[in-house]
Write a protein that binds this DNA or RNA. Sequence first.
DNA 1: GTCTATACATCGATAGAC
DNA 2: GTCTATCGATGTATAGAC
Lengths: 207, 207
Amino acid sequence: MSHIHSETEKKILAAAKEVFLRRGKDGARMQEIARQAGINQALLHYYFRNKDTLFATVARHLIRDFLETIFSSQPEASTFREFLQQFISNYIDHLSSNIEVSRFILWELERGGDVMVEEIRALQEQHGKEVFPLQQRIAEAIAQQEIRSLEPEHLIMSIIGMCAYPYIARPVVERIFRLPDVTSREFRDRRKQEVFQVLWNGIRLSS
Amino acid sequence: MSHIHSETEKKILAAAKEVFLRRGKDGARMQEIARQAGINQALLHYYFRNKDTLFATVARHLIRDFLETIFSSQPEASTFREFLQQFISNYIDHLSSNIEVSRFILWELERGGDVMVEEIRALQEQHGKEVFPLQQRIAEAIAQQEIRSLEPEHLIMSIIGMCAYPYIARPVVERIFRLPDVTSREFRDRRKQEVFQVLWNGIRLSS
DNA sequence: GTCTATACATCGATAGAC
DNA sequence: GTCTATCGATGTATAGAC
């Protein structure tokens, strides 16, 4: 847990991050990481005993950054309606401009999601709760009768699923549906609108 | 495109399917496939020139079966409301009892989704349309004013995203949200209900 | 700390006998 | 068609000099 990082160590971590993001754990080559860092393979093993420890370090950082960006700092909105709209917008924009990170997280989930789970737990403790801010906000909205009663976890799954799907199934979306590039402004705006409209009408009190 | 399959060829294909589903293309070992088929590695290469062709054959079959089950044979329902409910139920049940196939499709999408796209196109031609049955059904529902006007593609993304998310992010769902096993009857029923409720209220005419 | 050289393991693919 | 034996490529990790 030492935070003393030499220059070389930093260069290695930056290079490893790039390569692991592009190729995944198995696809990444220690040789490529070394070259990208401007050093040789032996030095890589001098700083990080082996590929596993290097990967673990990088994965931890990547996932922590992602979680903090999305789930920790929340939009300051007065109503839940506004909050939801902003959350969707932020989330889609973040996925769109960090496609490699989304893919990386998918890989991590397929691997069992251990790092993901640990980092979420750390985030929860950091906030002193059993839940993280988004969960909290939904519970409050229900209590204050801004939305109908539901399990916050299911709503979270719905939000994330709807937002993330186009970036997971990008080839199908762009080539079968003939929709514009999923990272384009045009697509994002259209998607944000549709997700919000469905969700908001789907959860608000029908009164 | 020959359909003459010897016994050995069938054994190989069955073994390859199992191993590729469990390990993915890169994770699979030709040796393991051979052992599982009760033959040796050389014979594998006698029937299928190399790993690529063997994988391509297996992937094509797997994805075709999946697509046909989900998107080809559609529930016979009179109203769109009922149709939607049944589609969600079928889709979640199918994902749930074929988790390995879901994971395999994710791998395929990460690889670029070429096989997926080709098989969807084949399915479309087979139905003589530019669209497949689900798309068609949504368009009709809009025309008949059963639901509000929207782009069918976006609704499809929403349905699939909401249904598939728990099976993609299974580790997070089960270990963070403390929800029951996503394949359990209990979870599936709850999820089906929530997805349908959000979607139906989200798309029906507010009249 | 940093390098070159190399050991060691894994795996896909092929040669050649039967 | 089916086998045993082995090649050759690739990739992680380490030995040892500086």
